[in-house]
Write a protein that binds this DNA or RNA. Structure first.
Length: 192
DNA sequence: TATTGGATCGCC
DNA sequence: GCGATCCAATAG
């Protein structure tokens, strides 16, 4: 069984979406090549009252896609150098998203090695900036429809074992929230 | 208008 | 532990 996640999947509680994305496959078509990887680590950023969220202080030019319909990509540049990929969740008007933090590479591994300048499999996509570089994701995908050919998520019905829930990485404000999720057995998580 | 602090990463 | 380097929130 192999089905592409539809918009209704994203139009739900962000914590549910963040957990259920684990074990599913992110697919990106770029320059005629298909790249894919299993999602093994995610983080949730939810609503106006989450101090760690970009949407915390209201809508800006950068974060406006978070306020729109679910099932679209929110891509931003962080620390001036790296991109981060998020999936917008919940109803129109409520700002929330899931940050994709790590993948287990599947298709397009040679391209990923070139872009990441390393041969080490575990280093290709074990972090939000790393996976965007490996997959060729940049702001050209800002606002991209996750139910389109360019980028989507596939459910292959794989079982994933234990999910670990911890505090989010790199956030000071809102650090007490345990909104980071990863597959316990995966060797491709950004840090344990 | 200037300063500061990030949802990061790789090298020192 | 620090520098690279952009964005946007804050202070002035």
């Amino acid at each position: 069984m192999r089905k592409i996640l539809q918009r209704k999947f994203y139009n739900r509680s962000t914590l549910k979406v963040a957990k259920e994305l684990l074990g599913k496959y992110l697919v990106v078509h770029k320059n005629g090549e298909k790249l894919s990887g299993k999602i093994v680590e995610t983080e949730a950023y939810i609503g106006l009252n989450d101090p760690a969220s970009h949407a915390h202080r209201g809508m800006t030019e950068r974060n406006k896609v978070m306020f729109g319909n679910p099932g679209y990509a929110y891509v931003y540049l962080t620390y001036g150098m790296y991109h981060c990929l998020n999936f917008v969740t919940e109803r129109n008007g409520y700002p929330a998203a899931v940050l994709i933090r790590a993948l287990e590479p599947e298709q397009g591994i040679e391209t990923m090695k070139q872009r990441r300048k390393t041969e080490i499999m575990e280093e290709l996509t074990n972090g939000p900036g790393k996976l965007c570089l490996a997959m060729g994701i940049d702001r050209a995908l800002y606002g991209a429809d996750l139910c389109s050919e360019a980028i989507y998520v596939e459910d292959r019905g794989e079982s994933i074992g234990k999910i670990v829930s911890t505090n989010r990485i790199g956030v000071e404000k809102g650090k007490e929230k345990k909104w980071r999720f990863y597959i316990k057995e995966s060797g491709f998580v950004s840090r344990k």
